[in-house]
Nucleic acid binder design. Structure first.
Lengths: 276, 276
DNA sequence: GAGTGGTCTAGACCACCGG
DNA sequence: CGGTGGTCTAGACCACTCG
């Protein structure tokens, strides 16, 4: 019965236990890989495998050339993404369009967090598979000029720390009617309200979820190294009063520090209220 | 400027390209690691790192002692987890309690998939952190007898292939009133209907999402090896007409083959209908 | 310049799978 | 049985950070 579980898994479990029972506290640096290798009497590569396991579990983050650190479980931020009654704006946090621009800010405020966004990065790009499918853009031959979309990207921070990346896509034609979409400034009234003024009222949406490994850009933004925890991808297609899809929003969250939730039906008020 | 991107990332990208453009088709086996090492003139460990990357990206699955295979993107199964109008059962797939027992089966049927569940695995266990918090069970000192919960677990298959694992938890007291919960058989009328007869009508729920690495049990169920794509965890707390939480359901999905979605407001009927 | 983690090699042994 | 991937070693060089 000696070695049924690999050594590196045992080591990861032991380090995890030290984190769980508080011998290693959030923010602490783990011993160097060399030290761990000596302490356990294994090679450094085995330690690297163990630290890898911890990273994927989300309790440890590694900063190359500096060390591995126990993750700070900063007060979790609850992002409520939907509402039963689309028109009901009377209760805190309730209303339409959860998780987006202004709703995100007000939800942060309610939870005593400081949220801010980067200035939007605006670009006109070729539509990708996802954009064409979601926005109902017909496919064209590969040698023809590709259809274009407007992309508005923002980095979102909570308490000064990177929280999520959001990219919204619109058909280029829409930007002719709603020219502020092309402006690299925040839309003060909120993009939902602005687009409503331009004739596209958001009356419904479809949300999809997936998990995938972070891209290089996301690793950099979140300050993570490779082999980190997967990110959660939230894809929202918004429909206007004519049943036409007019916006595609892709939001990428770092897991662990966010709780992503939906609420349906009647739930006690304290469920809405609680920030955790 | 030689080695800015690591060798194993290049190799992974090259293999990925072969998958994307069809030179490697779903179901194909990759060359053995030894062969890949020779072809690229690198050590086998470097190849292992590259295959690791592909696994985490979800396009390759490795079966130990057999080989690595390009993932079959079997017709994606769309799981609709919520409904705007809680009482509206008239449209296909619409109604209350998406993603659960009978709703899952009927949604599969609508999408021309064959779904079936394993016989429930029923157990009475100590309540964990999650169970106590969700079901509102007061914490007791560590040396006192721990509060108990009933767990009902099912493996869910679509087209004969493992799709998801679902665990439902109830307070033990509830099982005294609703004794079928303790019976290791399917509840024919559906557990939502059964519990309603027992005095707990499901009038609302809160859903949360997270991503995490799969446990050993989940790896085994899904037939995956280590360093695979993260699983998606869906946690639903159901509330009865008194605003009391009475059920906690944890569902674990393998990403890629499932699309997990919510719908709110008015969306075109074809959004509801489409199976992909 | 010393120390860190990231990459990589060239071996080794093992457990498990198939013919 | 031979072949597979999983684990592990004991080295090596690199790029980067920090004092």
């Amino acid at each position: 019965m000696a070695r049924r579980t690999p050594r590196y898994v045992e080591i990861a479990a032991d380090l995890q236990a030290r984190i769980d029972d508080g011998r290693l506290e959030p923010g602490d640096r783990l011993p160097t890989e060399k030290e761990l290798a000596q302490r356990w009497g294994v090679s450094e590569n085995t330690i690297k495998a163990a630290v890898n396991e911890l990273r994927r579990g989300g309790r440890v983050e590694t900063v190359p050339q500096k060390g591995s650190f126990v993750t700070e479980p900063d007060m979790p931020f609850v992002i409520t993404l939907n509402y039963t009654d689309l028109g009901d704006e009377n209760a805190p946090g309730r209303g339409f369009g959860g998780g987006e621009g202004k709703a995100f800010l007000s939800e942060a405020d309610r939870q005593r967090h400081q949220a801010h966004f980067s200035k939007p990065d605006v670009a006109v790009e070729d539509a990708g598979e996802l954009q064409m499918k979601a926005l109902g853009i017909p496919r064209v031959p590969a040698d023809a000029p590709q259809p274009q979309v407007v992309r508005r990207s923002q980095q979102r921070f909570v308490d000064g720390k990177p929280n999520s990346l959001q990219h919204s896509y619109f058909k280029l034609e829409l930007a002719f009617k709603a020219q502020d979409l092309l402006n690299s400034r925040d839309i003060a009234e909120g993009s939902v309200a602005y687009l409503q003024r331009c004739g596209h009222e958001q009356v419904g949406y479809e949300d999809e979820f997936d998990a995938r490994p972070p891209t290089e850009e996301e690793l950099k933004f979140f300050g993570l190294s490779k082999n980190s925890l997967a990110v959660i991808e939230h894809i929202r297609t918004a429909f206007d009063q004519n049943g036409e899809p007019f916006r595609l929003t892709v939001t990428v969250y770092k897991p662990g520090t966010n709780k992503i939730r939906f609420i349906a039906g009647d739930v006690p008020d304290e469920v809405w209220e609680r920030g955790s």
